[in-house]
């Protein structure tokens, strides 16, 4: 899909506005839950960018993983911590944080501006089949390593939440 013409340009600016405003909301919100809700809007905006770049699968994965799982997990954590939703007061770290983010933005803009990007006029968006083949042939080792890591994290989480009574019960049987 060509990124020219009115439609894609309009979509790009609209998505940029949504993403940036809600990202600002994440920082400015004094209520932690409001910050998470803004974060969800940011995720959806980023998914929109992926669709604009004809990467539908990555956009859907973004929504499934970040909105459907990560954000819901964060919400769950907020639910179970009673004081988190209370209004957070002003912090002394505001000015250093602003300085750091300006510096980071400067570095990123410099790198983006300075890099010689390769340009092409004929671009075929990779399909899900291509993605699957690449994951299970070229990138099979990182893929398997990630799955082992996730399994280890899963078992670790289960071990952490077990109570001593349950341990004793298992030791008996």
């Amino acid at each position: 899909m060509a990124l020219e013409g009115f439609g894609p340009a309009f979509a790009f600016w609209l998505l940029s506005a949504i993403t940036l405003i809600s990202a600002g909301g994440v920082m400015m919100a004094r209520n932690l839950l409001h910050a998470v809700l803004f974060l969800i809007v940011t995720f959806i905006g980023v998914a929109g960018f992926f669709i604009l770049l004809s990467a539908e699968f990555i956009a859907m994965a973004q929504v499934v993983i970040y909105v459907g799982a990560v954000a819901v997990l964060i919400l769950f954590a907020i639910l179970l911590t009673p004081r988190s939703a209370r209004d957070n007061s002003e912090t002394v770290w505001g000015a250093p944080a602003a300085l750091l983010s300006i510096a980071l933005a400067a570095v990123l803009i410099f790198v983006i501006h300075d890099t010689a990007w390769s340009e092409t006029n004929s671009f075929q968006a990779p399909s899900v089949e291509d993605l699957g083949r690449a994951l299970l042939s070229t990138w099979v080792l990182p893929f398997q390593l990630a799955s082992v890591l996730l399994t280890a994290a899963l078992i670790g989480a289960i071990m952490l939440v077990r109570s001593p009574e349950e341990e004793a019960e298992d030791a008996l049987s």
Binding site: I40, M60, V63, V64, G68
Partner: peptide, 18 residues
């Protein structure tokens, strides 16, 4: 007619929980 409409359906149906 999205080529990944199955995942689209799953993604969108996880939103009402929010």
């Amino acid at each position: 007619d999205v080529p990944v409409s199955l995942i689209y359906f799953l993604a969108v149906s996880s939103l009402p929980v929010l």
